[in-house]
Nucleic acid binder design. Structure first.
Lengths: 144, 144
DNA sequence: TCTTAAATATGATTTAAATCATGTTTTCAA
DNA sequence: TTGAAAACATGATTTAAATCATATTTAAGA
């Protein structure tokens, strides 16, 4: 459903949203240790996210990755799509190309629209929402 | 969520449930052409399913794969678990090991139990149910 | 201006899933 | 009883994702 890379991206951006700002940037090394993701692999993902404007970065000494406030208004789906593309999440569970509610594959209804609902949640949920949940203590930010 | 192999298994077993019985067995070659899955790859999967009693087989000339009536009462989850194991379907979307409703990861609620519900459907749905849906014309059996 | 610390860009390597290939066993039918 | 047709078993190859490595660019600070 989600690639490993996309999961790492979500974790990293969430970590940044909790621990960074314009004054306190974070290096790949720090993030990778904290969220338990291989450093060079994470580096590639962060660079990808930065190139697409999902996160901010600056080079050189005292440089690193961080989030602007408006980056926190981004929805989760936008993070995922930078890494996995648009297709992956909406694809039929049996790999049927023309699968939709008009022309449902034999498992489409079994899924009960679970996937659609999940995608909708990803579209509607922003980083800020997750931060709110976490600060309420109603959920946990997993490391592994 | 599901491996490619598990998808192929579902398609193959469903095809068998529609087109085979004790008198009309089907060879790997026939099934693979019909459901559009590589022959030798499918062979491995069918042998796996047969070894686990999900489908029946007989060797030699006039041999092949088929389903007994009681094989049609099997639920979809049992087909999937033979191929993918028990873990894969229930794992946390962020890869968090202790993720459950007691200790939800930050995405657990976002998923809205979509995954749990999906697994439940797979547990409750039998091949017969799918066959019924198909014969009503309310769904389609996809080839690709 | 020079050194150093960071991201950036690019490509190589590893790993696991997917796919292919082939020899062995069983059983039917002539 | 023998040849052929099928599943069965096993292992090799390919491919894509995941991971690693390293040279290049940028910018801070001395």
């Amino acid at each position: 459903m989600l690639s490993n890379s996309a999961k790492y991206a979500l974790k990293a951006v969430l970590y940044l949203s909790l621990n960074s700002n314009e004054e306190e940037k974070l290096m790949t090394k720090d993030i990778s240790e904290k969220i338990n993701v291989p450093k060079s692999y994470l580096a590639k993902i962060l660079q990808d996210l930065s190139r697409h404007g999902v996160i901010a970065s600056s080079k050189g000494p005292k440089g690193g990755f961080y989030l602007h406030d408006n980056n926190k208004k981004i929805s989760l789906i936008d993070i995922i799509e930078v890494i996995d593309g648009k297709q992956r999440l909406s694809s039929c569970i049996l790999g049927f190309h023309e699968c939709d509610s008009e022309n449902p594959c034999v498992l489409h209804d079994i899924m009960g629209g679970a996937n659609n609902q999940f995608v909708k949640s990803l579209e509607e949920t922003t980083l800020e929402d997750l931060i709110a949940d976490l600060s309420e203590g109603s959920s946990v930010f997993p490391v592994d």
